[in-house]
Amino acid sequence: MAAETVPQSSPSVMQLARWAVSDSLVMTRRNLLVWLRVPAYIVFTVVQPVIFVLLFRYVFGGAIQVANQGGYVNFLMPGIIGQTAAFATFATAIALAQEAKQGVIDRLRSLPMARSAVLAGRLIADGIRMLVTILVIVGVGYGVGFRFQNGAPSAIAMILLAEIFGVTICCVSAFIGLAIKDEESVQAFGLIWLFPLTFVSSAFVPIATMPSWMQAFANNQPVTLVINAMRSFALGGPQFPLFPALWESLVWLAGILIVFAPLAVRAYRRAS
């Protein structure tokens, strides 16, 4: 009888751990395949950031005065990479909202797969997607005159920090997508909170050029701290000290993770 083929003994902890890993990888592969199949997603993750680079480099760049070596393009690139990593998480929110609303998450939860794999697979796939975007932007940056000033290890450290930052913001976006669950609302709210955080920061202009009340916010918010640390890795020199920006940004990111990762998991459990 069919029932006898059902394994009756509970799997061991080791087995469960192996499944959690393989299930996450299957979900990762699924998400990446979908990404590759939809031209709109590619445009969103690659073409749009490139347009941003060109806009800031050639349209606004001429009007923005910076004192560092290599001029505005060197100042700009760490900022635009940080902004792009944060904006890329919009796709995380949209995808999870769709899956929650269409009942896909329900269906996946009725499978014998590890329950963590849906979120883990989403974060890993989106992290990979983000890395591709970052590398494309660095490439385009090189095409328009950007150069790392501080050696290869520091350049890698900058990319790594951008990636950690992006994955952290991914958790926030995952929470937003799963909590709102409605694609149209996520379209409306999913990015809006990132605009003040990324533009009222050191990403595109020196903060000293902002009105003083705004500087108070801009100087102390996490996006600025992350981008300052990234800029220090990319350009080096006394103008962009690595400390305390690096520690401060890592503390911020840890704090955001500690708050939003459990919130996202909880929203995932309730999403259906």
């Binding site: 395949l33 979908v34 199949r37 269409q102 896909v104």
Partner: peptide, 10 residues
């Protein structure tokens, strides 16, 4: 059932 788990892009 009604809600499908298939991924239509794949």
């Amino acid at each position: 059932g009604q809600a499908t788990a298939i991924q239509i892009e794949l």
